[in-house]
Design a protein around this nucleic acid. Sequence first.
DNA 1: TATGAATGAGCGTTCATTCAT
DNA 2: AATGAATGAACGCTCATTCAT
Lengths: 209, 209, 209, 209
Amino acid sequence: MQSPRWQRRAEDRPREICAAALDVFTEKGFAAARLDEIAKRAGVSKGTLYLYFKDKEDLFRAVVRDTVAPNVGALRDAAMASELPFAAVANMFLSRFADLAQRLPVGAVAKMVIGESGNFPELAKVWHDQVAGPSIGLLAGLIEKAQAKGEVRAGDPRLHAFTLMGPMLMGVIWREILQPVGGAPLDIEALARQHSQTVLTGLLAESEQ
Amino acid sequence: MQSPRWQRRAEDRPREICAAALDVFTEKGFAAARLDEIAKRAGVSKGTLYLYFKDKEDLFRAVVRDTVAPNVGALRDAAMASELPFAAVANMFLSRFADLAQRLPVGAVAKMVIGESGNFPELAKVWHDQVAGPSIGLLAGLIEKAQAKGEVRAGDPRLHAFTLMGPMLMGVIWREILQPVGGAPLDIEALARQHSQTVLTGLLAESEQ
Amino acid sequence: MQSPRWQRRAEDRPREICAAALDVFTEKGFAAARLDEIAKRAGVSKGTLYLYFKDKEDLFRAVVRDTVAPNVGALRDAAMASELPFAAVANMFLSRFADLAQRLPVGAVAKMVIGESGNFPELAKVWHDQVAGPSIGLLAGLIEKAQAKGEVRAGDPRLHAFTLMGPMLMGVIWREILQPVGGAPLDIEALARQHSQTVLTGLLAESEQ
Amino acid sequence: MQSPRWQRRAEDRPREICAAALDVFTEKGFAAARLDEIAKRAGVSKGTLYLYFKDKEDLFRAVVRDTVAPNVGALRDAAMASELPFAAVANMFLSRFADLAQRLPVGAVAKMVIGESGNFPELAKVWHDQVAGPSIGLLAGLIEKAQAKGEVRAGDPRLHAFTLMGPMLMGVIWREILQPVGGAPLDIEALARQHSQTVLTGLLAESEQ
DNA sequence: TATGAATGAGCGTTCATTCAT
DNA sequence: AATGAATGAACGCTCATTCAT
């Protein structure tokens, strides 16, 4: 009576709700996610959600943006290393991505963005404009510079960027989608290590090149 | 009066419905797809759907299976070429995949499977068991054989397979998800060509290796 | 080809359909009965029903009327015996009813009429006007005459008719409704025999009267 | 503005809904009853029904059970009078039943149970196990005891029970089914009075016995 | 005459949203 | 600020009815 149980941490509510919502949206997708369940997992009532978010879409967007945002900064830094040899930059970039994918729900967000891209094109746009586009652009830029220096072989720099990043995306998706249904476990960091070595000097044995 | 309200086309109906359903499920995802719209696009009434499919889930599964199935066969063939030099096999595999991705809605199916993997784990399983798993396994096997022959450099064959295929998956997803929201257009076949050259001999210029 | 299988017995169709419909309507009631099932049990297609009956209601009414009709005649006869002593008339009436209830689906029709009286008041009306009303009226008339002759004790003749017929109706309902769910089996004819004896001279032993 | 769109009345809601549902189910039967109409009569929205009942069947069962239950207790008491002369017991039993039938929707429940016995055999079972079976059993037991004391004439006690109760059931059904479609009005209590007198000492005038 | 594929209105049920408490 | 009972629009599914064959 005197000290209402729920007065504590009023300003953490939005975060708690977003965390619960991320889980449910990831598991079910936007349409199949139930606000009832999000509320339950967040430990609040359904009505409370509406004190912090205008509606279900607003909550969904908030979840995606809040989870995407931190990624953006983490990638910017890699750009600064552009004076190092390309091999070192590539190594760093891949291992950094692997590290990111271990700590943040990169796979979960990818899943949501991919699955709901038809219903929420703007989220795909955010992902493109803030994450995928800049990353690819950044890489392509580094590659182009390295080509100019004679470090990297000729070819469309953007396609080269796909060669570099594609396996990492595939790894993240494998973990998120196929591993839970019986796919062989995948060590993202090992993938980053082996791939960065291999892709630089080629899959073929030196004797064959 | 002039044109009969409907025609008997029992044989084509299921295909027509599946085609319409593929579109709608791809655009909206399972939960947000409306049977009304699928029916409208298929040019039939809502009730007609139920003459051929038990319910919405049944239709969804049929769509995924029917679209996944053709892919399976197309990949088996690549295995036969295993006596060729690995470089040739890899080339063929990638260009074949690119070709497949041009003609079949690979991206659309991937999108559905990824987005609904939480609600339909069995579809993810089908995709894993019949498409992704075998493909990766096949590649890994070829790679292992090539390693034994000294053609391919050391390393976990499965991770090498990711190195080989990842960029193609990324390409497909880019086209399906990001290109519609402003992503730069991507030529999958050009990607296959450049990637297969690059990945075999390395991103680095020969002088650097 | 030459001799179409179904040309036989074309004029029996309505009867066959009614028989199947009686079963299904009795089991399920009007609303829950499926034309599909009636057609299947009648060995015809759904469309064929519409060659003989305007719609579902029309079929229902036909079923009830066709099954009710024969009962009517069978009861008229009992009136002619009105010169016999009342005890003999009552005996005859009850045993005739028991006989009827053995051979015709009296219980089934009663069930339908009772269950659908809200939706088909006219059927209840048919039942009242052609079956229950006349029967009760007939009995009440006989009783009144017998009272005038000093054969039957004073009292409202119609209520006396309830005393006479009620147990038979209860017997029919018991068989139709409660026996299938575990009610002890009931021999309608034994009931008719014992009841007709008892009701005439009283439940109480003679020493008690 | 002036009057709130709705009020919280969690405690009364189930009862109000059941009352409305009883009316509609009685009028229409289970299948033809519309939840829209039940909700309207209960003064709530359709969705509210689902706050208190799992689905339409659950509501139906609740209605029948809640309406059957009170009857059960009311009949138990009659057993205690077993030391009185049988004539007194029978009198009491019949008048008590008539009283019950005046105050409770006995006819309505009978109608529902009879009409839906095919679709809801368990309700027929409840009715048999808790109402009809015990009542008949109770009466048969009393009759058997009275026979042992020489009060009641020989014969199957259960069939005697039909002789006693049948007219009352018929009266209830008459009122519920036939009176609304033009059947002559029936005074259940008068029926109980006259029947109990008549059935004990016989329909026949004393001079005839 | 007979069929059964096709229709579409209608209902049970769900769930995002509101609002009296 | 927080609740959760109440709402009602919307959707999946059914099934009586129609009609091309």
